[in-house]
Design a protein around this nucleic acid. Structure first.
Lengths: 184, 184, 184, 184
DNA sequence: AATGAATGAGGTTTCATTCAT
DNA sequence: GATGAATGAAACCTCATTCAT
């Protein structure tokens, strides 16, 4: 169950470096140096550089999925649900900022193989929104607006501004109000 | 007067391959093979692989900038301006899809040097929106919502769905109406 | 403690090949082939071809310097000092013939960066001679004559004739007698 | 008889660049750029980069040879002959400094093929000295001393100090007096 | 004679991966 | 489990030379 300490250190270093420099600018030698282990040790835990990357991506996907499942249940009004979901996801992204960066941006710039993981996982988000907004006439449109808005907040805040997360959430809530206002 | 034929062929091949496989998965040898020239010929026109990449990115930035300048003038109502701007930019993106893809996604996944180009150019978009929406109380919020929405439409349509461009524009217009509705 | 065996083998091969074929006619691939290691192994020990060259040159400079220091002390008459110094340096050159060749000739034919190393180190020789000959009226002239003579003996013997080293030393001693004769 | 202007320009540029940067650090593209002609033009006059190098070297060898021939005739005393010869050669070297540098230093650092040219031509010098000094008991020794001294003066003055040539000649004369003094 | 774009063999260097210890 | 030196395929880039104009 619990990963060996060495494996954890390799993952942490990989996340940090992938997220800072990208997949291709990160060398296995950088990862092991950062983790403080020998070059060969890496291959005791991961078959290849690609494998550790996939491993990391799947971890974040799994975590986000848990959040959507948690919030799709329950019987609150749509805006409450979305507010809580967003708040929860932003906290998650904030905690796993580096990994999230990999998921949201790096996957789009690699080749089609990696992009598939992104697109598949993204369906999850979309289904959740469509479900929550099922009583809205423009639910497709609203979903695209909200997902785009959320991703933009992530992009500007986590990639650049580094505002406190509570502000990001507040801005999302305001946008949410504005976007959903007067909609049934 | 105009770029030599060879240079154009190199650029076309590079755009195609960078967009399809990413910067790091594209080898100079791939580009020259696709362009049908010898390896050394590449270096007559570009000092390095990085240089041709930057060249391409700056081309798209320049083109988008021209659009913002064109539409920031004039005295139409905000929603008209945004509609026309968006329509024009979507057409541009459609025409330079591959280059735009590089600009919008690829730059975010490389190192800080490339990211800077993206962020600087992005200011341009933001300024345009803020200016057009200057009479709106929530102009900051609206800008983030609209930019996020627009980017999302680009992402899902040009990266995946490949819907006809008129539909994309129509969806943007509907979103625009919904977002700006009743706002003064 | 001591350099790894691989590093030593790379240095030996590099010295041999640089001396025989010159810096530019020696490829890293030649060096590794001669040393019996893989191409990449070279770069574990030296950052570039230039680096191993500099390394080798500095090694010979250091060794010659040790000799000048050893012989500048002591209180023998000038001709004794010079005789012993020359004998010692010729033995050294004989032992490190290939490296010395690089130092004495190769540095002069590359660009200014490498020439500087030669000229700086050459000051060492000159200072030694001037110091030993300090009681001679024509010490500047004598220094130039002796240095030129010594270098010539090295050039003709080590570059071409390959006479036994004792003969070279004997010829230097005779020249020394002739040059210094009757000088105070 | 008279070389075409283009050929002369190529030679001048080649001499300048070979002598400044060495044979291997000088590209054909540098030479043609300096000469102000097109890349292909070079090959109208020289079959290869090696050919122009050899051409240049043979030119200086031919010129020095002319001097030795001129001064070996006549019936002056040895020291007069040497003084005049040296003066003449130093003037020649001064005029063709760059070419001389190639001959005296660069040839020694290329491969054996080029070195042969140097050694063969050098015989010429030696024969001249031996002939002039034929009445001296130590003529072999004196020849080596004088040739070494002369080359050293060239090295320090033409490669570095750039003293006026008359001073160099004067220093050589003083050395000559010192070296030959009291010798019959 | 002159041009200069194009060539491609061959060089330097990188780095994911292996393996003997 | 851990090490880290060694590997070598494959990348980037250079530059002497050619050739159609």
């Amino acid at each position: 169950m619990s990963q060996s300490d060495t494996k954890k250190r390799l993952i942490n270093s990989a996340v940090k470096l992938f997220s800072k420099n990208g997949y291709f600018n990160t060398k296995v030698s950088d990862i092991v140096k950062d983790a403080g282990v020998a070059q060969g040790t890496f291959y005791l835990y991961f078959k290849s550089k690609e494998e550790i990357f996939i491993y990391i991506v799947e971890e974040i996907v799994r975590k986000i999925k848990q959040q959507t499942e948690k919030f799709s249940k329950g019987d609150w009004p749509a805006d409450e649900k979305l507010k809580n979901f967003a708040s929860s996801v932003f906290h998650l992204l904030s905690e796993y900022k580096e990994v999230a960066k990999i998921y949201f941006f790096y996957l789009l710039c690699t080749d089609e193989k990696f992009q598939k993981i992104h697109f598949e996982a993204e369906q999850m988000f979309k289904s959740f929104y469509l479900d929550v907004l099922k009583s809205y006439e423009d639910k497709e449109l609203l979903t695209d607006i909200l997902l785009g808005f959320g991703k933009r907040l992530f992009e500007i805040n986590f990639l650049r501004d580094q505002k406190p997360i509570e502000e990001v959430i507040k801005e999302f809530e305001e946008g949410l109000k504005l976007i959903l206002r007067k909609e049934k």
